[in-house]
């Protein structure tokens, strides 16, 4: 049994908030740079250059990459041989509050979804997995709501083919259109239950993007190719770069169904992890 103090978790979470919000993920930054290099549309190229410049300024001046610092989602992988001394949930929420206050990040969370009064920094959404071992992995994903609002779930018949799934993913990207800060990173969750498919779609956004097409599965490659023919482009003003990547997570499912969820991320896909 290994003891980890809640205080240590709180401090780690606060650090992750700053890292995620100030420093764009290296894989996302390099995907943006390749998109700029591959873009023929002049306006699209210059918007991509502005997005890259934004990331540079944010990191250098410790400013939030985007003013929408999200409703942070925290993913925990807790080793079953870990004993947490102190209160885990409150340590995470306190860590978020501390990090967000220290970084002058935005208090976007309203305590009551209907009354919508008095925005604060917490509570955040926490997903916990119990895993083997004696370590804790913490990931903070401050996903903005412009793109969160474009999330879709569809319960397909188990006899549906991949063509139908492809069409659903593409229609979801089309309906996001110019509104949710393209170029997007398209997260797809296939299988499990309705709730879990949505979680899988979001979780897939944590996977490193920008692998060579030959190393990704054929469905991913096809989807990316077709999405990038839509000519939505950066800011929706046309261009090749409608999506930087498509990430798919699958899970076994029931004989009677085939849930498919799409979680779209804006180009400012921010996340940071630490292993304690």
């Amino acid at each position: 049994m290994r003891i980890i103090k809640a205080e240590k978790i709180k401090n780690a979470v606060a650090q992750l908030c700053l890292k995620a919000n100030f420093s764009l993920r290296p894989d996302v930054l390099s995907a943006l740079k390749s998109a700029r290099a591959g873009e023929k549309n002049k306006r699209a190229k210059s918007i991509l250059a502005a997005i890259i410049e934004n990331a540079r300024i944010a990191k250098k001046e410790r400013l939030a990459i985007c003013q929408d610092t999200g409703l942070p989602t925290v993913f925990l992988e807790v080793g079953q041989d870990v004993l947490i001394r102190g209160e885990l949930k409150s340590a995470i929420n306190k860590g978020i509050e501390e990090g967000y206050k220290r970084g002058y990040l935005r208090n976007s969370i309203v305590p009551d979804p209907l009354l919508r009064f008095g925005p604060g920094y917490s509570p955040v959404v926490i997903h916990t997995d119990i895993v083997k071992g004696k370590r804790i992995k913490i990931t903070v994903l401050p996903k903005g709501f412009g793109c969160e609002n474009k999330t879709q779930l569809k319960m397909f018949n188990p006899t549906a083919n991949t063509e139908e799934i492809k069409r659903f993913v593409i229609e979801t990207v089309k309906s996001a259109g110019p509104d949710a800060c393209p170029p997007y990173i398209v997260g797809v969750g296939i299988g499990a239950t309705a709730d879990y498919a949505v979680l899988l779609a979001k979780k897939s956004l944590l996977k490193t993007i920008g692998h060579r097409p030959s190393t990704i599965d054929p469905l991913t490659a096809k989807l990316l190719k077709e999405i990038n023919k839509l000519n939505i482009g950066p800011m929706g003003l046309g261009g090749r770069a409608t999506a930087l990547a498509v990430n798919i997570e699958k899970y076994p499912t029931h004989i009677a169904g085939l849930p498919v969820a799409v979680s779209i991320s804006c180009h400012a896909l921010r996340s940071a992890s630490v292993l304690l």
């Binding site: 410790r62 400013l63 939030a64 003013q67 002058y104 976007s108």
Partner: peptide, 18 residues
């Protein structure tokens, strides 16, 4: 809806919303 204003700056991060 801008972020909080860091010390020494006129404003924080302040891009457009949908």
């Amino acid at each position: 809806g801008p972020t909080k204003t860091p010390k020494g700056k006129a404003i924080g991060s302040c891009g457009p919303t949908t």
